[in-house]
Write a protein that binds this DNA or RNA. Structure first.
Lengths: 336, 336
DNA sequence: ATTAGTAAATAAAACCTTTTAGCGCAATTT
DNA sequence: AAATTGCGCTAAAAGGTTTTATTTACTAAT
């Protein structure tokens, strides 16, 4: 890793032109009718001296950076962390790299980040959009730069999207609780217009309707502190004498569990959206609606790569099924 | 976000040269004695048309990309995920971006990633080095590119480094277990030469010596599956009739907890290295040695930025104290 | 009146590629 | 014999900056 060797050095050493070397290195030898002998000679030499083209110069000329922008809600949440890890290793195989940033659901930060990535000329975006990011996403589309949304989308905007079947996930979870004999089933959500939340809420309500049960819904402020969340969850569960709760995110569920520990009340039957190490280990272990993380990551990348290659025109929306992982926290209720 | 506007467009529009615009935009107006009137005129115009320089062209010319490479063990481990998040937001304020990749402790992958980042001309590196990465780090240093290691280092290599006081952390944890009256205290580690493991092991041994106790050490293969880890931990704990265990990483502790659940044995008193949401929530909650994540992230960035600005010459090694967070899993043993 | 010095601005080189347009030559077609 | 085609390769432009070296137009000093 000392002095960088240039394409011109190679041309000089072999007594040929830079153009020829470039063609050969970019797999255009055939197309440009470079002789096989020369092609081999160049390739061998390049390998021998370990030449690597300057990616910056390349990008400047071609307008392609081979870098993708990943804009997610929070890298330290295992749901997003795992998706990020999978995406990262997938695109890596294709020669792309990832630049990522967390928005923490702050729309201004999201806008700024996208602008920044745009200025850096990333080739494409994968975004979990915060509320209000619609205009920005629209602008990106108009600039003809590929964008795939995930986890949530904008109903009014034709975009590529990959996400879980939130309605079905919540519906199955709620139905399961009903089947197990619970009568006062609450739903904990966020003050947010994001689609995934709406869908989960709809799934819960539909199942409750089907079972002719009264519904209990509590929303938490998105920017609430852990303490605030815990307080409101304690009140929600205790004052309504709930015997079961469906939490719409893993961190809300964790706040609930913390609350039950802190305020020393018994957590009723519960189900969380998105799995988490905690849920497998607790006593009792927690039933979860698990999103198909691997499939989500794979589809995100596939769609984005197809777009980058210009191979698809119509927008794609992929909705993947959730799996209800039944654990101990929802064992059948003993009727008194 | 339509047609990109260039510096030459600005020069043309104002009837001045590109050079002048460039000087002004790079805060060299004073130094280059550009008149205040013109400076203001240019700045106003630039703002009005919203000109943003092409970062690629800039990087090509200056050799600086304002991108830092973050090479960590595993982004989905909350310890690393949290550090990554903190680093990300810190450098963001300074106008830098992060490209990251996880190595999963695979030295070949690590080498490849570093080469890749190097080819992309990142300005500097933050690395949690895997075993055997010494030569590569050395090469980076010789290429005069700033590198800061964290979590572990190479004793034979003079490098910048930020990490926790692993010896003290393990020593305090073990001493605490002794004080609480435990007599058969085991230590679970990895087959690895990484310094942080060695230090934790030394801390454990020193405390055991001080208390004239017999030591029990179990190492797990780094690439062991979860099942394999669980099996060996079960045997270790049960066959030795341990009454306390110190786990050298959070995921080893989690494997231990899973094993106790799966094989239905009672987990003795325990302490884990590195906190995790699980540990606060379990019944009983788990005592941990907590690393000062925020300080680690801050120091990493500070050192790297100083290096990038060429403000420090001697290598810096920062060792930050760990905190023993005593929870329910290590309450005093009742002597029979 | 010439020289020296300075303020204000600039032309052109440099960074390293990819890609367009085209050259010189031999073989083939008109 | 002239015109066309195909082959194998290349010169030079383009991509958008920063930076070095220089120019121009003054004023002040000799």
């Amino acid at each position: 890793m000392k002095k960088r060797i240039l394409i011109s050095d190679i041309a000089k050493a072999l007594g040929i032109s830079v153009t020829t070397v470039s063609f050969i290195l970019n797999d255009k030898a055939k197309e440009k009718r470079i002789s096989e002998a020369l092609t081999k000679r160049v390739l061998d030499y390049v390998k021998k001296v370990g030449y690597k083209p300057n990616e910056l110069a390349k990008s400047l000329r071609t307008g392609k950076t081979k870098i993708l922008g990943l804009i997610i809600e929070d890298i330290s949440n295992p749901f997003f962390g795992n998706i990020a890890r999978l995406i990262e290793s997938k695109v890596y195989e294709q020669g792309y790299r990832i630049i990522y940033c967390s928005t923490n659901n702050d729309v201004d930060k999201a806008r700024e980040l996208i602008q920044m990535f745009y200025d850096r000329q990333v080739d494409g975006f994968i975004i979990t959009p915060s509320d209000g990011l619609e205009d920005t996403v629209k602008q990106l589309q108009q600039s003809n730069i590929p964008v795939v949304l995930f986890d949530r989308y904008f109903p009014s905007l034709e975009t590529d999207y990959v996400g879980a079947d939130n309605f079905q996930g919540a519906f199955d979870a709620t139905s399961h609780l009903c089947q197990q004999g619970y009568k006062r089933i609450g739903f904990v959500s966020l003050y947010s217009d994001q689609t995934q939340m709406k869908e989960r809420s709809d799934g819960y309500l539909k199942a409750m309707d089907n079972n002719k049960q009264q519904s209990f819904i509590q929303k938490v402020q998105m920017d609430a502190s852990d303490e605030e969340a815990m307080d409101s969850l304690k009140d929600f569960i205790c004052e309504n004498r709930l015997d079961a709760v469906l939490f719409s995110t893993n961190y809300l569920a964790i706040s609930g569990l913390k609350a039950s520990k802190k305020y020393n009340f018994v957590m009723p039957a519960m189900i969380a959206f998105d799995d988490h190490t905690v849920f497998k280990l607790l006593e009792p272990s927690i039933t979860v609606v698990s999103q198909p993380i691997k499939e989500i990551a794979e589809n995100l990348i596939n769609i984005l790569l197809l777009r980058l290659q210009g191979k698809i025109k119509a927008t794609r929306k992929m909705v993947l099924p959730c799996e209800l992982k039944i654990r101990e926290s929802t064992k059948a209720k003993v009727t008194l």
